[in-house]
Design a protein around this nucleic acid. Structure first.
Lengths: 240, 240
DNA sequence: CGTTGATTTGAGTAAGATCAAGTCGGGTGG
DNA sequence: CCACCCGACTTGATCTTACTCAAATCAACG
């Protein structure tokens, strides 16, 4: 898939590139990788790998403890970048796993450095993406630390709905929802059982519908109120 | 305090600057701010302010919910940078508050952008700092989500001890510890009461000593084992 | 001294964990 | 076609961690 025909870039949520940047990016792209659902994209604790852009599909960043407890730090949707942290800090502190079938654009090893040298505005965009990623984690942390179970499930669903929407994944009143309840539990620091009961509660209240791998939000306003969620995503974001 | 005489830069944990960078940084520094303990450095939800480097003292990043629940996302120590997120995303999603008396180096409004244009390697360093900050939050998230109370208190104490040490704050076997138990609770998503009992437990086990605003670690190895903490901080880090 | 904020202790409670069976649905092999 | 398997989802019962409420102690400070 040549960058010039990137299906993401024309979406309203993404910022257009500047002069010469498209050519630059195209030149640095060394290939595309396809990974099956459940496959590992970056091994936990591995050495620096490539930098990737998620072209299609969903993934998540996580850490595991020796006894198997797992915490999901964030979910990755099309347009998100991955491997920046590993590249800069020379090692990964977390793993990345595919949630659905995933396509990745892989960039040459020294891409990050050459962006900084050759295309400063694009480098700033890269940092923007890093900052945006941290903001998502910050919000997730509020969920895990201070929200009750209903509140955090609500917050997660709103956040994923919004993000999926701006990645162009909304169809009708629903977006794809490839997470199992185990993923939700691991993202929110809850047990699967409690996650299940909590999601049922939201369903019975008529606030969300989940089924067939899709999520529909019945009453966004109420859901937001329950979550005390008011982060609004940036109107446009850079896409590397 | 002129940058040429910065007390942090000579510390073994910090990376030396390259040709011309010191002059550049000096030129962009527009002043220094002093803030008393408990003072607000960045208001929650405020517009983009300056970018600051923490010259001395401790601070923390946090979010509050309407009903007063608070989550501390991370603690800031000398050498840490703050305001990057706000500058890039044009608004803060969190507040920053001083824990002790704090001195900040303030930089001119468009500093970030000019770094990218004029000193690419320094820009890369800036991104390094952002990535490093996110890594800390990732680890905190593991605590809040998946560690038990003892485990997360242990992890927090080890992490702060190490960071304080590499900021040159260790004296004998102890480092400053300006947090109240309320701060610890808000960082770990626990109640103050439970935090208190948990810290007593660690004290009675002889693993830590806390008093007079200082923290001494009696048995780092055991503390680490309890925390299942094995992140090692980078050997050297950039300082803006 | 009196006030204020931090820490500590005790008692009762609740949110959420754990354990143990189910059910349901889609895929596989006989 | 059907038996069976496996993973995801559900349900019920019980238990525990950590929360809440309330009050006491303690230290710093004006």
């Amino acid at each position: 898939m040549p960058c010039a025909q990137c299906p993401l870039r024309p979406l309203p949520g993404f910022k257009p590139l500047r002069e010469g940047e498209l050519a630059f990016i195209s030149r640095r792209k060394v290939g595309q990788r396809r990974i099956e659902p459940g496959g590992s994209i970056v091994a936990e604790g591995g050495a620096a790998a490539h930098v990737f852009t998620l072209l299609s599909g969903w993934a998540f960043r996580f850490k595991t403890m020796t006894d198997g407890r797992r915490q999901i730090m964030s979910f990755l949707l099309p347009g998100d970048i991955l491997g920046l942290q590993a590249e800069l800090l020379e090692a990964t502190a977390h793993g990345v796993e595919a949630l659905t079938e995933v396509s990745l654009c892989a960039f040459a090893r020294d891409t990050v450095w050459s962006v900084y040298r050759v295309h400063p505005p694009l480098a700033l965009d890269l940092t923007w993406l890093a900052a945006h990623g941290e903001r998502l984690v910050d919000d997730a942390m509020l969920s895990v630390g201070r929200r009750t179970a209903v509140e955090s499930v609500a917050a997660l669903l709103v956040s994923l709905f919004k993000r999926a929407e701006s990645a162009g994944l909304r169809e009708g009143d629903s977006v794809p929802f490839p997470l199992t309840q185990t993923h939700v539990a691991d993202a929110l620091g809850l047990s699967v059982v409690h996650t299940n009961r909590t999601m049922q509660r939201l369903r019975r209240m008529g606030l969300v519908r989940i089924g067939d791998g899709r999520l529909a939000v019945g009453d966004l306003r109420s859901l937001r109120r329950i979550a005390q969620y008011w982060e609004q995503p940036a109107p446009v974001r850079p896409l590397f």
